[in-house]
Design a protein around this nucleic acid. Structure first.
Lengths: 253, 253
DNA sequence: CAGTGGTCTAGACCACGCG
DNA sequence: GCGTGGTCTAGACCACTGG
Protein backbone atom coordinates (compact mmCIF):
# COMPACT_ATOMS: atom_id res chain seq x y z
CA UNK A 1 0.00 0.00 0.00
CA UNK A 2 1.10 3.52 -0.69
CA UNK A 3 2.23 5.33 2.42
CA UNK A 4 0.04 8.21 3.41
CA UNK A 5 1.59 11.65 3.00
CA UNK A 6 -0.72 13.48 5.32
CA UNK A 7 -0.81 17.22 4.71
CA UNK A 8 -0.59 18.04 8.38
CA UNK A 9 0.86 15.87 11.11
CA UNK A 10 -1.47 17.13 13.79
CA UNK A 11 -4.88 18.16 12.53
CA UNK A 12 -6.71 18.25 15.81
CA UNK A 13 -9.60 20.63 16.18
CA UNK A 14 -7.73 23.36 17.96
CA UNK A 15 -4.26 22.64 16.68
CA UNK A 16 -1.33 24.72 17.83
CA UNK A 17 -1.12 27.64 15.46
CA UNK A 18 1.48 27.31 12.75
CA UNK A 19 3.38 30.49 11.92
CA UNK A 20 1.90 30.96 8.50
CA UNK A 21 -1.81 30.34 8.35
CA UNK A 22 -2.41 28.38 5.19
CA UNK A 23 -5.63 26.66 4.32
CA UNK A 24 -5.77 22.95 3.64
CA UNK A 25 -6.56 23.35 -0.03
CA UNK A 26 -3.63 25.75 -0.40
CA UNK A 27 -1.31 23.11 1.03
CA UNK A 28 -2.76 20.55 -1.36
CA UNK A 29 -2.35 23.05 -4.21
CA UNK A 30 1.30 23.60 -3.29
CA UNK A 31 2.05 19.89 -3.08
CA UNK A 32 0.55 19.22 -6.50
CA UNK A 33 2.22 22.31 -7.96
CA UNK A 34 5.59 21.15 -6.67
CA UNK A 35 5.09 17.79 -8.30
CA UNK A 36 4.45 19.53 -11.61
CA UNK A 37 7.64 21.57 -11.17
CA UNK A 38 9.56 18.38 -10.32
CA UNK A 39 8.08 16.67 -13.37
CA UNK A 40 6.59 13.93 -11.21
CA UNK A 41 3.57 14.33 -13.49
CA UNK A 42 4.53 15.40 -16.99
CA UNK A 43 2.47 17.36 -19.52
CA UNK A 44 -0.16 15.07 -20.98
CA UNK A 45 -0.14 12.73 -17.97
CA UNK A 46 -3.31 11.97 -16.09
CA UNK A 47 -3.25 12.78 -12.39
CA UNK A 48 -4.54 10.24 -9.89
CA UNK A 49 -8.29 10.53 -9.37
CA UNK A 50 -9.64 13.00 -6.86
CA UNK A 51 -10.47 10.16 -4.48
CA UNK A 52 -6.95 8.73 -4.71
CA UNK A 53 -5.38 12.12 -4.05
CA UNK A 54 -7.76 12.80 -1.19
CA UNK A 55 -6.85 9.43 0.27
CA UNK A 56 -3.11 9.93 -0.13
CA UNK A 57 -3.11 13.46 1.29
CA UNK A 58 -5.62 12.61 4.01
CA UNK A 59 -8.17 15.27 3.10
CA UNK A 60 -11.66 15.11 1.70
CA UNK A 61 -12.43 14.94 -2.00
CA UNK A 62 -13.95 18.42 -1.87
CA UNK A 63 -10.67 19.92 -0.68
CA UNK A 64 -8.71 18.23 -3.47
CA UNK A 65 -11.35 19.40 -5.90
CA UNK A 66 -10.97 23.04 -4.87
CA UNK A 67 -7.19 22.86 -5.25
CA UNK A 68 -7.47 21.23 -8.67
CA UNK A 69 -10.13 23.67 -9.84
CA UNK A 70 -7.89 26.59 -8.94
CA UNK A 71 -5.10 25.11 -11.05
CA UNK A 72 -7.51 24.47 -13.90
CA UNK A 73 -8.42 28.17 -14.00
CA UNK A 74 -4.67 28.87 -14.19
CA UNK A 75 -4.49 26.58 -17.23
CA UNK A 76 -1.97 24.32 -15.52
CA UNK A 77 -4.41 21.40 -15.59
CA UNK A 78 -7.50 20.50 -17.56
CA UNK A 79 -10.28 18.04 -16.82
CA UNK A 80 -12.42 15.82 -18.95
CA UNK A 81 -15.51 14.45 -17.34
CA UNK A 82 -15.49 10.68 -17.20
CA UNK A 83 -11.77 10.53 -18.05
CA UNK A 84 -9.70 12.34 -15.47
CA UNK A 85 -7.56 15.39 -14.72
CA UNK A 86 -4.53 16.03 -16.96
CA UNK A 87 -1.42 18.21 -17.05
CA UNK A 88 -1.65 20.87 -19.76
CA UNK A 89 0.60 20.64 -22.82
CA UNK A 90 1.84 23.33 -25.17
CA UNK A 91 -0.10 22.14 -28.15
CA UNK A 92 -0.54 24.16 -31.31
CA UNK A 93 -3.94 25.32 -30.12
CA UNK A 94 -2.62 26.37 -26.73
CA UNK A 95 0.19 28.36 -28.32
CA UNK A 96 -2.32 29.94 -30.67
CA UNK A 97 -4.97 30.95 -28.17
CA UNK A 98 -3.00 31.50 -24.99
CA UNK A 99 0.35 32.91 -26.04
CA UNK A 100 -0.09 34.32 -29.51
CA UNK A 101 -2.20 37.44 -29.74
CA UNK A 102 -1.70 38.47 -33.36
CA UNK A 103 -4.75 37.84 -35.53
CA UNK A 104 -5.76 38.87 -39.04
CA UNK A 105 -7.86 41.98 -39.61
CA UNK A 106 -10.78 39.63 -40.16
CA UNK A 107 -10.12 37.92 -36.81
CA UNK A 108 -8.56 34.77 -38.27
CA UNK A 109 -5.95 33.00 -36.14
CA UNK A 110 -2.87 31.41 -37.68
CA UNK A 111 0.60 30.59 -36.39
CA UNK A 112 3.20 32.18 -38.68
CA UNK A 113 6.13 30.22 -40.13
CA UNK A 114 9.68 31.18 -39.10
CA UNK A 115 13.14 31.56 -40.61
CA UNK A 116 16.19 31.85 -38.38
CA UNK A 117 18.34 34.88 -39.24
CA UNK A 118 21.17 34.45 -36.72
CA UNK A 119 22.04 32.60 -33.54
CA UNK A 120 24.87 33.00 -31.03
CA UNK A 121 25.93 32.29 -27.49
CA UNK A 122 27.06 35.44 -25.71
CA UNK A 123 27.71 37.22 -22.46
CA UNK A 124 24.50 39.04 -21.52
CA UNK A 125 24.27 42.79 -21.46
CA UNK A 126 23.21 44.25 -18.09
CA UNK A 127 19.69 44.68 -19.47
CA UNK A 128 19.51 41.07 -20.60
CA UNK A 129 20.86 39.83 -17.27
CA UNK A 130 18.26 41.88 -15.44
CA UNK A 131 15.35 40.80 -17.63
CA UNK A 132 16.24 37.11 -17.23
CA UNK A 133 17.36 37.47 -13.59
CA UNK A 134 20.75 35.92 -14.33
CA UNK A 135 23.59 35.37 -11.92
CA UNK A 136 27.10 36.68 -12.46
CA UNK A 137 28.80 34.65 -15.20
CA UNK A 138 25.64 33.11 -16.68
CA UNK A 139 25.62 32.96 -20.47
CA UNK A 140 22.69 33.38 -22.82
CA UNK A 141 21.82 32.11 -26.27
CA UNK A 142 20.28 34.73 -28.51
CA UNK A 143 18.73 34.40 -31.94
CA UNK A 144 16.78 36.46 -34.41
CA UNK A 145 14.12 35.20 -36.75
CA UNK A 146 11.61 36.50 -39.26
CA UNK A 147 8.05 35.22 -39.34
CA UNK A 148 5.66 34.88 -42.28
CA UNK A 149 1.89 34.81 -42.63
CA UNK A 150 1.01 33.16 -45.97
CA UNK A 151 4.58 33.86 -47.15
CA UNK A 152 4.28 37.56 -46.30
CA UNK A 153 7.09 38.70 -43.94
CA UNK A 154 5.37 40.30 -40.94
CA UNK A 155 7.34 39.92 -37.71
CA UNK A 156 11.02 40.26 -36.75
CA UNK A 157 11.89 38.71 -33.38
CA UNK A 158 14.90 38.72 -31.09
CA UNK A 159 14.82 35.92 -28.52
CA UNK A 160 17.15 35.51 -25.53
CA UNK A 161 17.38 32.39 -23.36
CA UNK A 162 19.45 31.56 -20.26
CA UNK A 163 21.95 28.98 -21.56
CA UNK A 164 21.89 27.24 -18.20
CA UNK A 165 18.41 25.91 -18.89
CA UNK A 166 18.90 25.23 -22.59
CA UNK A 167 22.21 23.36 -23.10
CA UNK A 168 23.03 22.83 -26.76
CA UNK A 169 20.21 25.09 -27.93
CA UNK A 170 20.82 26.48 -31.41
CA UNK A 171 24.08 24.61 -31.92
CA UNK A 172 23.00 20.96 -31.72
CA UNK A 173 19.54 21.57 -33.14
CA UNK A 174 17.68 24.07 -35.27
CA UNK A 175 15.04 25.88 -33.15
CA UNK A 176 11.57 24.87 -34.42
CA UNK A 177 8.64 27.16 -35.11
CA UNK A 178 6.67 26.39 -31.95
CA UNK A 179 9.26 27.20 -29.30
CA UNK A 180 7.19 26.73 -26.15
CA UNK A 181 6.31 23.17 -27.11
CA UNK A 182 9.99 22.53 -27.83
CA UNK A 183 11.09 23.93 -24.46
CA UNK A 184 8.70 21.48 -22.88
CA UNK A 185 9.47 18.36 -24.89
CA UNK A 186 13.24 18.82 -25.16
CA UNK A 187 14.08 20.55 -21.86
CA UNK A 188 11.14 19.77 -19.57
CA UNK A 189 10.50 23.48 -19.15
CA UNK A 190 6.87 24.60 -19.09
CA UNK A 191 5.98 28.21 -19.80
CA UNK A 192 3.21 29.00 -17.34
CA UNK A 193 2.63 32.71 -17.85
CA UNK A 194 3.99 35.77 -19.58
CA UNK A 195 3.95 39.55 -19.28
CA UNK A 196 3.84 41.64 -22.41
CA UNK A 197 4.77 45.30 -22.85
CA UNK A 198 3.62 47.00 -26.03
CA UNK A 199 4.83 50.13 -27.78
CA UNK A 200 4.75 51.65 -31.23
CA UNK A 201 8.20 52.11 -32.77
CA UNK A 202 9.75 53.13 -36.05
CA UNK A 203 11.11 50.32 -38.23
CA UNK A 204 14.91 50.20 -38.39
CA UNK A 205 16.66 50.17 -41.75
CA UNK A 206 17.17 46.42 -41.44
CA UNK A 207 13.51 45.83 -40.58
CA UNK A 208 12.39 48.02 -43.44
CA UNK A 209 14.42 45.76 -45.69
CA UNK A 210 13.32 42.45 -44.18
CA UNK A 211 9.63 43.26 -44.05
CA UNK A 212 9.44 45.12 -47.34
CA UNK A 213 7.79 48.20 -45.87
CA UNK A 214 8.20 51.93 -46.25
CA UNK A 215 11.06 53.79 -44.62
CA UNK A 216 10.43 54.48 -40.93
CA UNK A 217 7.05 52.75 -41.01
CA UNK A 218 5.38 52.16 -37.62
CA UNK A 219 5.80 48.71 -36.05
CA UNK A 220 4.11 47.19 -33.02
CA UNK A 221 6.76 46.19 -30.48
CA UNK A 222 5.83 43.31 -28.16
CA UNK A 223 8.36 42.97 -25.33
CA UNK A 224 7.61 39.76 -23.46
CA UNK A 225 9.05 37.90 -20.47
CA UNK A 226 7.88 34.27 -20.30
CA UNK A 227 7.98 32.53 -16.92
CA UNK A 228 8.19 28.96 -15.67
CA UNK A 229 5.85 27.24 -13.22
CA UNK A 230 7.90 28.63 -10.32
CA UNK A 231 7.79 32.15 -11.83
CA UNK A 232 11.45 32.28 -12.86
CA UNK A 233 11.93 33.94 -16.26
CA UNK A 234 12.87 31.60 -19.11
CA UNK A 235 12.63 33.69 -22.23
CA UNK A 236 12.88 37.31 -23.25
CA UNK A 237 11.38 38.02 -26.63
CA UNK A 238 11.09 41.30 -28.49
CA UNK A 239 8.83 41.12 -31.55
CA UNK A 240 8.40 43.89 -34.09
CA UNK A 241 5.20 43.40 -36.07
CA UNK A 242 3.93 45.03 -39.22
CA UNK A 243 0.28 45.56 -38.28
CA UNK A 244 -0.94 46.69 -41.70
CA UNK A 245 -2.89 43.44 -42.13
CA UNK A 246 -2.81 42.10 -38.57
CA UNK A 247 -3.66 43.26 -35.11
CA UNK A 248 -2.99 42.39 -31.46
CA UNK A 249 -6.06 41.42 -29.44
CA UNK A 250 -6.73 41.52 -25.69
CA UNK A 251 -9.77 41.00 -23.49
CA UNK A 252 -10.30 43.13 -20.43
CA UNK A 253 -12.64 42.82 -17.44
CA UNK B 1 -42.81 36.44 4.75
CA UNK B 2 -41.15 36.74 1.39
CA UNK B 3 -42.62 34.44 -1.17
CA UNK B 4 -40.31 31.70 -2.29
CA UNK B 5 -39.11 32.02 -5.88
CA UNK B 6 -38.08 28.43 -6.33
CA UNK B 7 -35.60 27.94 -9.16
CA UNK B 8 -37.42 24.92 -10.47
CA UNK B 9 -41.07 24.11 -9.99
CA UNK B 10 -40.54 20.37 -9.99
CA UNK B 11 -37.21 19.27 -8.58
CA UNK B 12 -38.00 15.65 -8.01
CA UNK B 13 -35.18 13.16 -8.22
CA UNK B 14 -35.86 12.00 -11.72
CA UNK B 15 -37.54 15.12 -13.02
CA UNK B 16 -38.82 15.26 -16.55
CA UNK B 17 -35.94 16.46 -18.66
CA UNK B 18 -36.09 20.11 -19.58
CA UNK B 19 -35.04 20.97 -23.14
CA UNK B 20 -31.90 22.83 -22.20
CA UNK B 21 -29.89 21.13 -19.51
CA UNK B 22 -28.75 23.83 -17.15
CA UNK B 23 -27.29 23.21 -13.75
CA UNK B 24 -28.84 24.63 -10.63
CA UNK B 25 -26.00 27.03 -9.94
CA UNK B 26 -26.20 28.30 -13.52
CA UNK B 27 -29.87 29.09 -12.99
CA UNK B 28 -29.03 30.86 -9.76
CA UNK B 29 -26.23 32.73 -11.57
CA UNK B 30 -28.63 33.87 -14.28
CA UNK B 31 -31.25 35.03 -11.81
CA UNK B 32 -28.71 37.12 -9.90
CA UNK B 33 -27.15 38.40 -13.13
CA UNK B 34 -30.56 39.52 -14.38
CA UNK B 35 -31.15 41.42 -11.15
CA UNK B 36 -27.86 43.25 -11.69
CA UNK B 37 -28.91 44.12 -15.26
CA UNK B 38 -32.29 45.32 -13.97
CA UNK B 39 -30.56 47.40 -11.29
CA UNK B 40 -32.44 45.57 -8.54
CA UNK B 41 -29.09 45.61 -6.78
CA UNK B 42 -27.02 48.65 -7.68
CA UNK B 43 -23.24 49.03 -7.67
CA UNK B 44 -22.06 49.34 -4.08
CA UNK B 45 -25.13 47.57 -2.67
CA UNK B 46 -24.77 44.52 -0.46
CA UNK B 47 -26.52 41.40 -1.70
CA UNK B 48 -28.62 39.35 0.72
CA UNK B 49 -26.54 36.82 2.62
CA UNK B 50 -25.84 33.42 1.10
CA UNK B 51 -28.29 31.82 3.49
CA UNK B 52 -31.04 34.30 2.59
CA UNK B 53 -30.51 33.76 -1.13
CA UNK B 54 -30.39 30.01 -0.68
CA UNK B 55 -33.63 30.20 1.24
CA UNK B 56 -35.36 32.45 -1.27
CA UNK B 57 -34.27 30.40 -4.29
CA UNK B 58 -34.85 27.09 -2.53
CA UNK B 59 -31.32 25.71 -3.02
CA UNK B 60 -28.50 24.98 -0.63
CA UNK B 61 -25.97 27.55 0.51
CA UNK B 62 -23.23 25.72 -1.41
CA UNK B 63 -25.06 26.18 -4.70
CA UNK B 64 -25.52 29.91 -4.11
CA UNK B 65 -21.86 30.09 -3.11
CA UNK B 66 -20.71 28.56 -6.39
CA UNK B 67 -22.84 30.96 -8.43
CA UNK B 68 -21.57 33.96 -6.45
CA UNK B 69 -17.95 32.82 -6.66
CA UNK B 70 -18.21 32.55 -10.44
CA UNK B 71 -19.43 36.13 -10.60
CA UNK B 72 -16.68 37.27 -8.25
CA UNK B 73 -14.05 35.89 -10.64
CA UNK B 74 -15.78 37.90 -13.37
CA UNK B 75 -15.36 41.02 -11.22
CA UNK B 76 -19.10 41.62 -11.16
CA UNK B 77 -19.22 41.10 -7.39
CA UNK B 78 -16.71 41.21 -4.57
CA UNK B 79 -16.85 39.74 -1.11
CA UNK B 80 -15.57 40.83 2.26
CA UNK B 81 -15.44 38.23 4.95
CA UNK B 82 -17.61 39.10 7.90
CA UNK B 83 -19.38 41.83 5.93
CA UNK B 84 -21.15 40.46 2.90
CA UNK B 85 -21.18 40.25 -0.89
CA UNK B 86 -21.30 43.49 -2.87
CA UNK B 87 -21.90 44.70 -6.41
CA UNK B 88 -18.71 46.06 -7.99
CA UNK B 89 -18.37 49.77 -8.71
CA UNK B 90 -16.29 51.61 -11.26
CA UNK B 91 -14.02 53.25 -8.76
CA UNK B 92 -10.81 55.01 -9.67
CA UNK B 93 -8.82 51.92 -8.76
CA UNK B 94 -11.02 49.67 -10.86
CA UNK B 95 -10.68 51.94 -13.87
CA UNK B 96 -6.94 52.04 -13.32
CA UNK B 97 -6.26 48.33 -12.93
CA UNK B 98 -9.01 46.73 -14.96
CA UNK B 99 -9.65 49.02 -17.91
CA UNK B 100 -6.57 51.18 -18.28
CA UNK B 101 -3.48 49.41 -19.52
CA UNK B 102 -1.08 52.29 -20.12
CA UNK B 103 1.67 52.54 -17.51
CA UNK B 104 4.90 54.51 -17.26
CA UNK B 105 8.18 53.02 -18.42
CA UNK B 106 8.96 52.48 -14.74
CA UNK B 107 5.67 50.61 -14.25
CA UNK B 108 3.88 53.44 -12.44
CA UNK B 109 0.11 53.61 -12.88
CA UNK B 110 -1.69 56.93 -13.19
CA UNK B 111 -4.99 58.02 -14.75
CA UNK B 112 -4.33 60.85 -17.23
CA UNK B 113 -6.29 64.12 -17.18
CA UNK B 114 -8.48 64.95 -20.16
CA UNK B 115 -9.49 67.96 -22.28
CA UNK B 116 -12.46 67.76 -24.62
CA UNK B 117 -11.61 68.84 -28.18
CA UNK B 118 -15.00 68.50 -29.82
CA UNK B 119 -18.40 66.92 -29.30
CA UNK B 120 -21.35 66.36 -31.64
CA UNK B 121 -24.46 64.30 -32.20
CA UNK B 122 -24.47 62.69 -35.62
CA UNK B 123 -25.79 59.99 -37.89
CA UNK B 124 -23.43 57.01 -37.59
CA UNK B 125 -21.28 55.87 -40.47
CA UNK B 126 -21.83 52.23 -41.49
CA UNK B 127 -18.67 51.29 -39.57
CA UNK B 128 -19.87 53.04 -36.41
CA UNK B 129 -23.30 51.44 -36.69
CA UNK B 130 -21.71 48.02 -37.07
CA UNK B 131 -19.27 48.45 -34.18
CA UNK B 132 -22.04 49.59 -31.83
CA UNK B 133 -24.65 47.21 -33.29
CA UNK B 134 -27.09 50.04 -33.93
CA UNK B 135 -30.50 49.81 -35.50
CA UNK B 136 -31.58 51.85 -38.52
CA UNK B 137 -32.09 55.47 -37.51
CA UNK B 138 -30.18 55.32 -34.22
CA UNK B 139 -28.03 58.37 -33.54
CA UNK B 140 -24.67 58.55 -31.83
CA UNK B 141 -22.80 61.14 -29.80
CA UNK B 142 -19.14 61.40 -30.69
CA UNK B 143 -16.40 63.38 -29.06
CA UNK B 144 -12.65 63.75 -29.19
CA UNK B 145 -10.35 64.49 -26.31
CA UNK B 146 -6.67 64.77 -25.52
CA UNK B 147 -5.19 63.22 -22.39
CA UNK B 148 -2.22 64.34 -20.31
CA UNK B 149 0.20 62.58 -17.98
CA UNK B 150 1.78 65.20 -15.70
CA UNK B 151 0.72 67.90 -18.17
CA UNK B 152 2.42 66.10 -21.08
CA UNK B 153 -0.02 65.47 -23.97
CA UNK B 154 0.12 61.71 -24.66
CA UNK B 155 -3.17 60.31 -25.96
CA UNK B 156 -5.75 61.47 -28.51
CA UNK B 157 -9.08 59.66 -28.27
CA UNK B 158 -12.24 59.47 -30.36
CA UNK B 159 -15.23 58.12 -28.45
CA UNK B 160 -18.59 57.11 -29.91
CA UNK B 161 -21.71 56.32 -27.85
CA UNK B 162 -25.20 55.21 -28.85
CA UNK B 163 -27.34 58.27 -28.07
CA UNK B 164 -30.23 56.02 -27.11
CA UNK B 165 -28.46 55.00 -23.92
CA UNK B 166 -26.97 58.40 -23.13
CA UNK B 167 -29.66 61.09 -23.51
CA UNK B 168 -28.27 64.58 -23.06
CA UNK B 169 -24.69 63.41 -23.05
CA UNK B 170 -22.25 66.16 -24.03
CA UNK B 171 -24.94 68.81 -24.35
CA UNK B 172 -26.38 69.01 -20.85
CA UNK B 173 -23.15 68.12 -19.09
CA UNK B 174 -19.41 68.14 -19.71
CA UNK B 175 -18.09 64.53 -19.92
CA UNK B 176 -15.83 63.91 -16.89
CA UNK B 177 -12.41 62.27 -16.90
CA UNK B 178 -13.50 58.87 -15.59
CA UNK B 179 -16.17 57.98 -18.12
CA UNK B 180 -17.05 54.45 -16.98
CA UNK B 181 -17.91 55.67 -13.50
CA UNK B 182 -20.03 58.40 -15.04
CA UNK B 183 -21.90 55.95 -17.29
CA UNK B 184 -22.73 54.04 -14.14
CA UNK B 185 -23.71 56.87 -11.82
CA UNK B 186 -25.55 59.02 -14.38
CA UNK B 187 -27.06 56.40 -16.70
CA UNK B 188 -27.07 53.17 -14.69
CA UNK B 189 -24.90 51.51 -17.33
CA UNK B 190 -22.16 49.21 -16.09
CA UNK B 191 -19.23 48.35 -18.35
CA UNK B 192 -18.57 44.67 -17.69
CA UNK B 193 -15.92 43.80 -20.24
CA UNK B 194 -14.05 45.11 -23.25
CA UNK B 195 -12.16 43.87 -26.27
CA UNK B 196 -9.11 45.77 -27.44
CA UNK B 197 -7.43 45.68 -30.85
CA UNK B 198 -3.94 47.14 -31.08
CA UNK B 199 -1.94 48.38 -34.04
CA UNK B 200 0.97 50.68 -34.71
CA UNK B 201 0.05 53.67 -36.88
CA UNK B 202 1.62 56.89 -38.13
CA UNK B 203 0.55 60.08 -36.40
CA UNK B 204 -1.69 62.31 -38.52
CA UNK B 205 -0.77 65.95 -39.04
CA UNK B 206 -3.32 66.96 -36.39
CA UNK B 207 -1.95 64.44 -33.88
CA UNK B 208 1.61 65.51 -34.57
CA UNK B 209 0.48 68.99 -33.65
CA UNK B 210 -1.56 68.07 -30.57
CA UNK B 211 1.03 65.74 -29.07
CA UNK B 212 4.09 67.80 -29.98
CA UNK B 213 5.88 64.91 -31.67
CA UNK B 214 7.90 64.45 -34.86
CA UNK B 215 6.22 64.25 -38.23
CA UNK B 216 4.81 60.78 -38.93
CA UNK B 217 5.93 59.46 -35.55
CA UNK B 218 4.63 56.00 -34.60
CA UNK B 219 1.58 55.87 -32.29
CA UNK B 220 -0.02 52.92 -30.54
CA UNK B 221 -3.64 52.59 -31.64
CA UNK B 222 -6.02 51.00 -29.13
CA UNK B 223 -9.38 50.22 -30.72
CA UNK B 224 -11.78 49.15 -28.02
CA UNK B 225 -15.42 48.05 -27.78
CA UNK B 226 -16.79 48.20 -24.23
CA UNK B 227 -19.78 46.02 -23.38
CA UNK B 228 -22.55 46.06 -20.81
CA UNK B 229 -23.54 43.27 -18.41
CA UNK B 230 -25.71 41.72 -21.13
CA UNK B 231 -22.85 41.96 -23.66
CA UNK B 232 -24.36 44.72 -25.77
CA UNK B 233 -21.76 47.29 -26.90
CA UNK B 234 -21.94 50.67 -25.17
CA UNK B 235 -18.81 52.51 -26.27
CA UNK B 236 -16.40 52.49 -29.16
CA UNK B 237 -13.13 54.19 -28.39
CA UNK B 238 -10.06 54.65 -30.56
CA UNK B 239 -7.02 55.90 -28.66
CA UNK B 240 -3.75 56.99 -30.27
CA UNK B 241 -0.93 56.93 -27.73
CA UNK B 242 2.55 58.35 -27.83
CA UNK B 243 4.47 55.45 -26.24
CA UNK B 244 7.82 57.22 -25.93
CA UNK B 245 7.49 57.33 -22.15
CA UNK B 246 4.60 54.90 -21.61
CA UNK B 247 3.70 51.36 -22.55
CA UNK B 248 0.71 49.07 -22.75
CA UNK B 249 0.83 46.01 -20.46
CA UNK B 250 -0.91 42.65 -20.69
CA UNK B 251 -0.68 39.38 -18.78
CA UNK B 252 -0.98 36.08 -20.59
CA UNK B 253 -1.50 32.53 -19.39
C1' DC C 1 -22.08 39.42 20.84
C1' DA C 2 -24.52 37.94 16.46
C1' DG C 3 -24.04 37.67 11.57
C1' DT C 4 -21.24 37.28 7.57
C1' DG C 5 -18.34 34.83 4.29
C1' DG C 6 -14.44 31.02 4.23
C1' DT C 7 -13.09 26.31 4.88
C1' DC C 8 -13.78 21.48 5.34
C1' DT C 9 -16.14 17.26 5.52
C1' DA C 10 -19.23 13.34 4.09
C1' DG C 11 -22.26 11.39 1.25
C1' DA C 12 -25.56 11.22 -2.63
C1' DC C 13 -26.67 11.15 -7.36
C1' DC C 14 -25.75 12.55 -12.31
C1' DA C 15 -23.24 12.62 -16.93
C1' DC C 16 -19.69 11.04 -19.43
C1' DG C 17 -16.09 7.75 -21.65
C1' DC C 18 -14.61 3.34 -22.28
C1' DG C 19 -14.52 -1.54 -22.41
C1' DG D 1 -20.74 -1.98 -15.68
C1' DC D 2 -17.45 0.74 -13.68
C1' DG D 3 -14.62 4.62 -12.69
C1' DT D 4 -14.11 9.32 -13.69
C1' DG D 5 -15.22 14.20 -12.84
C1' DG D 6 -19.63 17.38 -12.09
C1' DT D 7 -23.38 18.82 -9.20
C1' DC D 8 -25.89 19.30 -5.00
C1' DT D 9 -26.91 18.95 -0.27
C1' DA D 10 -26.35 19.38 4.86
C1' DG D 11 -23.95 20.54 8.61
C1' DA D 12 -19.83 21.86 11.28
C1' DC D 13 -16.43 25.03 12.62
C1' DC D 14 -13.31 29.12 11.73
C1' DA D 15 -12.11 34.14 10.92
C1' DC D 16 -13.55 38.47 10.36
C1' DT D 17 -16.62 42.64 11.04
C1' DG D 18 -19.43 45.71 13.44
C1' DG D 19 -22.14 47.20 17.23
Amino acid sequence: MAQKAAVSAANSNKATKTKKSQTLYQKVDNIIRQRLIDNVWKPGDALPSEMQLADELDVSQGTVRKALNDMVTENLLFRRQGLGTFVSEHTERRALFLYFSIVGNDGSRLLPESNILSCEEKIPTPEEAEKLQLNQGDMIVQFRRIRFFNNAPTIVETISLPLEHFPGFGTDVEPPNNLFRFYQSAYGITVAKAEEHLKAVRASAEETDLLGIADGAPLLEIDRIAKMLDSRPVEWRVSHCDTSNYRYVAERG
